[in-house]
C-alpha cells in the first residue's frame, strides 16, 4: 500500500532462536507510533532488521516502504529508499567530521556526476544545528567521538533532518538523556512531524511520550505486538508496569 510503512508477518531469528514472531505493524505517513515493551522482547532487533543489519536471519515476511519490499536489501539501499534509523547507541567514527559525514550521505542520494552544493549545504546544516542548539563548531568534530549522551542523540536528529526520510525509526532515543536534552531532542522530532512522514518511536519508558505524543501506542512482548491503543495506553503501562504485560500475555502467547 502506498503511504505506509508496512511490516508483514515478519519472522526473524538469531542462532536458531526466534526473536520476531509473525510480527505485523502498519504505520501510515503522518502518524507517530510508539512501540513499548519490556527489555529483550525484540524491539531493537526489529529496528535493526528493518534497517538492513546482516546479523539476523530473516525466516519470512516483508517490510514494505510505500508498497516496495526492502527487506534483505543493503543498509544503504534501504536508507536511500527513505528509511532512517536513529540509533540507541550511535557509533563513534574517529577522523570523520559531522559535516563530511552528512555530506557523504547527501552525496550518495544524488545522481552520478552531480555534487552537493557546498554553500547551500552549510547554510542548511547550520540552520538545523541552531534549531537543535548544537554549537556550529561541532561540524568539524569527529562524528560522535567524545560526545555526551545528549550530544550524540542531537547529532542523530540532525542527521535525520538533513536526510529528509519518509519513515523514521527511533530506537530508545531517550536512553541516556537528561530532561533538557530530552526536550531539545523531542522538539527536533516534533518539528519533523508532517503528513509526509511516519515515525516509529521505540522506548522502554513512558516519559519520552510526554514530549513526543504518539497517535498509536503498541505493546510488544515476546516477538510480537500484543496490545495497541492510544496515547493513554502508555500512561497505563507506566502505572501497571511491564509485569502486568507479562502476566496478561504470557499465557495468551504460550
Amino acid at each position: 500500500m502506498n503511504n505506509t510503512l508496512e511490516i508483514k508477518n515478519l519472522n526473524v531469528s538469531i542462532d536458531g532462536q526466534a526473536i520476531l514472531k509473525d510480527f505485523n505493524l502498519t504505520i501510515p505517513k503522518g502518524e507517530v507510533h510508539a512501540l513499548m515493551g519490556p527489555n529483550g522482547t525484540g524491539k531493537s532487533t526489529l529496528a535493526k532488521v528493518i534497517a538492513g543489519h546482516e546479523d539476523y536471519t530473516i525466516e519470512s515476511g516483508e517490510v514494505l516502504l510505500d508498497g516496495v519490499n526492502i527487506l534483505g536489501e543493503e543498509p544503504d539501499t534501504i536508507a536511500k529508499a527513505g528509511l532512517f534509523l536513529a540509533f540507541q547507541y550511535p557509533l563513534e567514527i574517529p577522523g570523520v567530521s559531522i559535516a563530511n559525514f552528512i555530506r557523504a550521505a547527501r552525496q550518495a542520494r544524488l545522481p552520478e556526476g552531480e555534487d552537493v552544493n557546498a554553500v547551500e549545504y552549510y547554510k542548511e546544516l547550520y540552520a538545523k544545528m541552531d534549531a537543535l542548539k548544537m554549537d556550529r563548531k561541532f561540524t568539524a568534530r569527529s562524528l560522535n567521538e567524545g560526545f555526551s549522551g545528549g550530544e550524540k542523540k542531537r547529532c542523530e536528529i540532525l542527521q535525520m533532518s538533513m536526510l529528509n526520510p519518509m519513515y523514521c525509526i527511533m530506537d530508545e532515543t531517550d536512553s541516556g538523556l537528561d530532561i533538557d536534552a530530552l526536550r531539545i531532542v523531542s522538539e527536533g522530532v516534533n518539528l519533523m512531524r508532517s503528513e509526509e512522514r511516519g515515525f516509529l518511536v521505540i522506548t522502554h519508558y513512558q516519559r519520552l511520550l510526554d514530549y513526543i505524543v504518539p497517535d498509536v501506542v503498541h505493546v510488544m512482548f515476546d516477538g510480537r505486538i500484543v496490545h495497541s491503543g492510544d496515547a493513554e495506553l502508555a500512561k497505563e503501562l507506566e502505572t501497571k508496569g511491564y509485569d502486568w504485560v507479562k502476566e496478561e500475555f504470557t499465557s495468551a502467547t504460550a
Binding site: G52, H53, D76, I78, L85, A104, A108, L163
Partner: peptide, 26 residues
C-alpha cells in the same frame, strides 16, 4: 561502524574509505 555509516545511505566502499581516511586524519 560500517553498518552505522551505511544506514545513512553511504555505500560500503565509500564508508570504508571514509573510515580509513578518518583513521589517518589524526
Amino acid at each position: 561502524e560500517l553498518f552505522y555509516m551505511m544506514s545513512r545511505g553511504i555505500a560500503k566502499r565509500d564508508a570504508m574509505k571514509l573510515m580509513v581516511f578518518g583513521f589517518f586524519e589524526e
